[in-house]
């Protein structure tokens, strides 16, 4: 089975490049002809995760593997980790700084929104070390593109 693998490095506090990884992944998925609604869900989940790395961590990476059935995205960062995952998953809970909020983020919607967009979601974190998200979205059976632009 064919699997296309993409890897992106994401730096902490790099707000200038924020979204580039997600933007590139989104373009690849579109070119592969995956249904636009599914592509959008993957883009939203990846973008939220990318912003999380930039805002909260010491930097990290996004690994996407695309096979004929699904897109699996592993987001791993170095950094503070999450003390209380249950709390972090709660809509509205946020530890983001005022600066981040001024950029339009840090509303405490990121993790819940990622979970809402995907079919399988797992989060692991070791406080003081890392956070890892595993995001899977199935796209097969939705190959037919309606209309396009």
């Amino acid at each position: 089975m064919i699997t296309i693998k993409l890897k992106y490095q994401v730096e902490k506090d790099d707000f200038m490049k924020a979204g580039q990884a997600s933007s590139n992944l989104k373009k690849v998925l579109k070119q592969l002809g995956i249904n636009s609604k599914i592509v959008r869900k993957i883009a939203i989940a990846t973008y939220e995760a990318e912003m999380n790395i930039i805002i909260h961590s010491e930097g990290g990476s996004i690994d996407a593997s695309i096979d004929p059935e699904k897109v699996k995205i592993i987001v791993r960062d170095r950094g503070p980790g999450i003390k209380d995952i249950e709390l972090a998953m709660k809509a509205g809970y946020s530890t983001a700084s005022q600066k981040v909020r001024e950029l339009g983020f840090g509303a405490g919607m990121g993790l819940p929104n990622i979970k809402r967009c995907c079919d399988e979601f797992a989060i692991r974190s070791s406080f003081g070390e890392y956070t890892e998200l595993s995001i899977t979205i199935y796209h097969s059976g939705n190959n037919t593109e309606e209309g396009g632009e």
Binding site: M1, I2, I4, Q31, L32, G33, I34, I66, D67, P68, E69, H139, S140, N143, E145
Partner: peptide
């Protein structure tokens, strides 16, 4: 085939 995600599973 032109739909790459489909081609991936059939070629």
């Amino acid at each position: 085939g032109d739909l790459l995600s489909w081609v991936m599973s059939h070629v």
